[in-house]
C-alpha cells in the first residue's frame, strides 16, 4: 500500500496531466457531435470485435452442448422423414395411424455416446452409454451421422454392447442407389477398417466405381437409405458369376463419438415373424 502511495506521489504531475486531459477529452466527446459519433463508432466496432472474439471462445466451450442439441434435433428430423412414416405403408392412406402407438412414426431415435470402440480386432464391438433403462434392446440398429455403425447385441441397465460393422459376423444387403436394386452381402474381411467386401453381386450388373450404397428396404434392422459406403474397386472373372467388390465405408470407425440407436416401434411383430422363418445360426445379419 505504501509503495502505491509513494508511486502516486512520485508520479503526481503526469497523473494530474492525464486527469485534466481526460476531463478535456470527455468534454470534447460529449459536446461535439462529430467527435462524439466517431469516437462511439470506433468504440462500438471495438466492442463488437470483442463480442465476436468472446462468442468464439464461449461457443468453443459450448461445443459439447451444441453437439448434443444437434443430435436431438437430428433425431426429431429423422422422425419427420417420409420413409419413417407408417402412412407410407401399402395401405397408402395418408391419415393412417398405428393402432397401438397412435403415432405415424415407425422408428424412434435414441442418442448415445460411444464409450468403448475397437477397430483392430477380428470381431469388433462398441460399448454405448445407454442401456435398457433408456429403451435400448437387442437387435436395434446403430447409426451415426456418417452412416451405419452396427447392431445392438446385448443391453445392460445403463450400457449396451453393439456389434460393429467391422465384425466378421456382421452382414448386410446393400441398396445400389444408381441401379435401384438390392443385391449382395457386405461383410468385413478383418483387414482394413475403412473397407468392407461386397460379394454375391451378379457380374451382369453394370457396376461403376464410386457408386453409393445404402441400407435397403429388405433390412429388418436398419431403416432404408442409411449410407453404407462407396464402391472403390470391382473385379469380375469368367470363372465366377459374381463380382468381387471393395467398398469404402461411409463411417470412419476410428472417430466414432455420438451415435443414434434406432428403435423399430413394430419390432415385436418382426420378431414374431422372424421366428417363423428358419435362419442360420449365429451372426447378426439383416
Amino acid at each position: 500500500m505504501l509503495v502505491i502511495f509513494r508511486w502516486i506521489r512520485n508520479q503526481a504531475y503526469p497523473l494530474l496531466y492525464v486527469l485534466l486531459l481526460l476531463s478535456a477529452v470527455t468534454q470534447i466527446f460529449r459536446y461535439h457531435f462529430y467527435q462524439h459519433s466517431i469516437y462511439f463508432g470506433h468504440a462500438l466496432s471495438i466492442h463488437r470485435s470483442i463480442d465476436v472474439w468472446k462468442s468464439g471462445i464461449t461457443s468453443y466451450f459450448k461445443l459439447r452442448t451444441t453437439n448434443e442439441q444437434l443430435v436431438k434435433e437430428n433425431g426429431l428430423l429423422r422422425n419427420q422423414l417420409n420413409w419413417n412414416l407408417t402412412s407410407n405403408s401399402p395401405k397408402g392412406a395418408s391419415t393412417y395411424k398405428d393402432t397401438f402407438t397412435n403415432t405415424l412414426i415407425k422408428y424412434e431415435y435414441i442418442p448415445a455416446r460411444v464409450i468403448r470402440n475397437s477397430v483392430n480386432e477380428q470381431n469388433n464391438f462398441i460399448v454405448l452409454d445407454r442401456g435398457y433403462k433408456d429403451g435400448i434392446k437387442k437387435h436395434m440398429s446403430v447409426i451415426c451421422p456418417m452412416g451405419i455403425v452396427g447392431v445392438v447385441v446385448e443391453s445392460a441397465a445403463h450400457y449396451s454392447l453393439a456389434m460393429s460393422v467391422l465384425n466378421s459376423k456382421f452382414e448386410i444387403t446393400p441398396y445400389f442407389y444408381n441401379l435401384k436394386i438390392s443385391q449382395g452381402v457386405i461383410s468385413w474381411d478383418g483387414d482394413d477398417p475403412s473397407y468392407v467386401e461386397l460379394e454375391e453381386v451378379n457380374r451382369f450388373v453394370k457396376l461403376k466405381n464410386g457408386m453409393k450404397l445404402y441400407t435397403s428396404n429388405y433390412s429388418l434392422l436398419f431403416p432404408a437409405g442409411i449410407p453404407i459406403g462407396t464402391i472403390e474397386k470391382s473385379e469380375s472373372n469368367l470363372k465366377s458369376n459374381f463380382y468381387s467388390i471393395k467398398v469404402k465405408l461411409a463411417t470412419d470407425f476410428s472417430q466414432l463419438d455420438v451415435v443414434t440407436v434406432i428403435k423399430n416401434i413394430h419390432q415385436n411383430e418382426l420378431d414374431v415373424l422372424n421366428q417363423i422363418i428358419p435362419t442360420q445360426e449365429g451372426g447378426a445379419n439383416d
Binding site: 496531466y17 478535456a24 468534454q27 460529449r30 459536446y31
Partner: peptide, 22 residues
C-alpha cells in the same frame, strides 16, 4: 486547464483548447 476552459467557454469549442493547453 482553466485558461483553456475559459477560451472554450467563450468560443463554444468545449474541451479542444483545454486539451491543447494542458
Amino acid at each position: 486547464f482553466f485558461f483553456g476552459l475559459t477560451i472554450d467557454a467563450f468560443g463554444g469549442s468545449l474541451g479542444m483548447h483545454t486539451a491543447a493547453c494542458v
